[in-house]
Amino acid sequence: MSAIEEYFNRKQGGLVGELYTSAIAELVTVDLQEMKADIKLLEEEESLIMSVPIGAQQTGGFIIRPPYQVGDKVIVVFAKEDIEPVLYGGGDPSELQHDKDNAIILCGISDYLTTLPAGFAEHERDLIVANKDLTAKFVLMETGEILMDSTENISINSKKDINFTAGGVITTSDSRGGG
């Protein structure tokens, strides 16, 4: 290999080493009110990144936000462009591309050491919102049926009326024996 080829290979290796695309990180602090966290990249010794926005499923007036906890492992993506103008409502973007400062927490990641209960596979074509042990779950089934199940109390609170309409029989049971 010629000296010029070696030079460009070293230069390319240095550039690629500073190019961030995605990584696995651990949550060091979590602020669910402001939807941001401090993270540590697992692949690097000194890699604390502060005030990283937590991505959530959200549009318009709706949001689905998991209860992230300190110690959770997450997938982090690094935006190509500076994210500060988006986060702070304007301004000129910096020149940094695929930089650590452009990190966004995408989602949590599960390890293969713990498997989820069989109930998750049972609903493989349905949308499930549940805790991992399935003691509380909400299932929106592909058929249109809705299942809400809990081993604890279920509370429904409304400032206005609650209406139940059924095309058939409404059944109730009371475990206290009251009917």
Rank of each mutant, 00 (worst) to 15 (best):
E18F: 00
E152M: 02
G144L: 02
T135W: 09
D174G: 12
I109K: 09
L116Y: 02
G177L: 09
Q69N: 13
K36G: 05
A37E: 03
D31R: 09
S155I: 14
Q58A: 12
N153G: 05
L41T: 06
I39N: 01
N9R: 04
V169H: 14
I83E: 08
S47M: 11
Y112W: 11
T29F: 06
E6D: 15
Q33F: 09
F78R: 00
M1Q: 12
V28G: 01
A79E: 08
H123L: 04
N163D: 13
E44P: 00
A130W: 05
A118P: 00
E142P: 02
L147H: 01
I24W: 01
G179I: 10
I162V: 15
H98R: 00
G119N: 12
G177Y: 10
I83Y: 01
I63A: 14
I63F: 08
I49L: 11
P93K: 12
A103V: 08
L87G: 08
I64N: 15
I162P: 01
I64F: 14
T114D: 14
F8V: 15
V74S: 11
V129G: 06
T165H: 10
S173W: 14
I105R: 07
V139W: 00
E84V: 04
P53V: 11
I105E: 03
E145K: 08
P85N: 08
A136H: 07
I39D: 02
G179M: 06
I128R: 00
F78H: 06
P67N: 15
E124M: 04
Y20W: 12
E5D: 15
V70R: 13
M35D: 13
H98N: 11
V74P: 07
A3M: 14
S2D: 15
M1V: 07
K100C: 02
L134T: 05
A25Y: 01
N157K: 09
F138G: 02
R10Q: 15
A25Q: 00
A56W: 03
N157I: 03
P67M: 12
P117F: 00
T165G: 12
R65P: 03
I24D: 04
K137E: 11
K100T: 01
I24Y: 03
I75L: 10
S173C: 07
D82S: 06
P93N: 10
T114I: 15
K137H: 06
F164V: 15
L113A: 13
E18Q: 09
Q57W: 11
T59E: 13
V139P: 02
E142K: 11
Y88G: 08
G17S: 13
L116H: 09
L32W: 07
I83L: 03
T114G: 07
L42K: 11
S22I: 09
D101T: 05
V76Q: 05
V28Y: 03
S175E: 15
Y88T: 07
A25M: 04
G61V: 07
Y112R: 12
E142G: 01
I156G: 02
A130S: 08
